[in-house]
Computed example of a mutant assay.
Amino acid sequence: MKARHFTYVSHPARVIFGSGTVGQLPDEVDRLNAQRALILSTAAQQGDAEALADRLGPRVAGIFPGAVMHTPVEVSVLATERARELGADVLVALGGGSTTGLAKAIALRTDLPQIILPTTYAGSEMTPILGETSDGQKRTQSSPKVLPEVVIYDVDLTLGLPVGLSGTSGINAIAHAVEALYARDRNPVIEALAIEAIGALARALPRIVAAPRDPAARSEALYGAWLCGVCLGSVGMALHHKLCHTLGGSFDLPHAETHTVVLPHALAYNAPAIPDAMAALVRVLGPDPAAALFALGRKVGAPAGLAALGMPTDGVDRAVDLALSNPYWNPQPLERAGLRDLIARACDGGPPRSL
């Protein structure tokens, strides 16, 4: 075996994991020497944000229930202005990737510390990556300013997550770990975490479909999502994430569902160039990992194709053009014909096909 060469960078973050851990939020605010928390949520989770405000009492400066999908820049600017008006000295985000993204966007502009309480399996709470949408395109950047200082994982916050969203959110998380296995800057630490994470979620998601409030299944899924987030925050991204950012930002497709549809196809496209990653995936997903991920989507009730999510059939060529503009590094060369077939199959809902 030849010697391995790699660089591993660990991002600082305080992680609290368990059941009932939301009760530690006041102590975490105090630990940051903060006194004026701005609580962030979506409109749908405003009631949960208000309950969280009751827990914090006088430490709350206000609530901003305006987080939306794909983090539009205009919402980021509005929320940042609100944080400044209120004199907020800490951001508390309750929700999934949309709310976490908004907290990061405010932190980028203000350098306020963040405490994230995930209610889905998005994983973005563990990354220094922010994606914002403007002029119909989603653009990503990486900065230590957007890495949350504290993440409180409370399994109880996920017990009521609808089965459908649980499934797509979980497969979205799996995508982070899958791409970490063949990232240009991959390393053995992240590879080990990725396989552990994929296995945990692949086991947990069907159990959640069968018993949505099973705390053991929910705990395993949240554990897997945490590790997937670590993977996403530690190494670069490739074709899958480029496609999802393109499709989501340009066609306003739902984030987790888009990841769920695209992942098997992107993996099949890259399969010929990543034999070691495919061998590792076989250990946790079975002999045909791309087909297994496609089947997992059906088990959790996710749509099979992008057309069901609102992708116009005449948008395939535009999506290919966008994917080829400023492309991410990818182990398999990006070729127009192959990409067009990938996106067209993902749009129609057909099974993945390797090159």
Rank of each mutant, 00 (worst) to 15 (best):
217 A>F: 04
121 Y>M: 03
145 K>Y: 00
38 L>H: 04
123 G>L: 01
172 N>Q: 01
228 C>I: 02
335 E>N: 04
89 D>R: 10
2 K>P: 12
51 A>N: 15
46 Q>L: 06
143 S>I: 07
215 P>N: 12
115 I>W: 12
181 L>T: 07
175 A>E: 04
236 G>I: 05
182 Y>F: 15
343 I>H: 11
1 M>D: 09
316 V>I: 15
132 E>P: 08
90 V>G: 09
13 A>P: 00
89 D>L: 11
297 G>D: 02
38 L>F: 00
82 R>G: 00
274 I>E: 05
137 Q>L: 15
338 G>C: 09
96 G>F: 02
120 T>E: 06
26 P>I: 11
162 P>C: 12
176 H>C: 07
21 T>F: 02
336 R>V: 09
111 D>P: 02
37 A>P: 00
55 R>A: 13
111 D>M: 04
327 P>G: 03
171 I>K: 07
58 P>Q: 08
256 A>Q: 02
354 S>L: 02
78 L>K: 14
96 G>Y: 03
227 L>W: 01
307 A>L: 13
285 L>R: 08
129 I>V: 15
218 R>K: 15
325 S>D: 13
31 R>C: 05
11 H>A: 10
247 L>T: 02
199 G>M: 06
172 N>M: 02
102 L>P: 08
348 D>E: 15
147 L>A: 10
3 A>C: 05
29 V>K: 10
285 L>C: 10
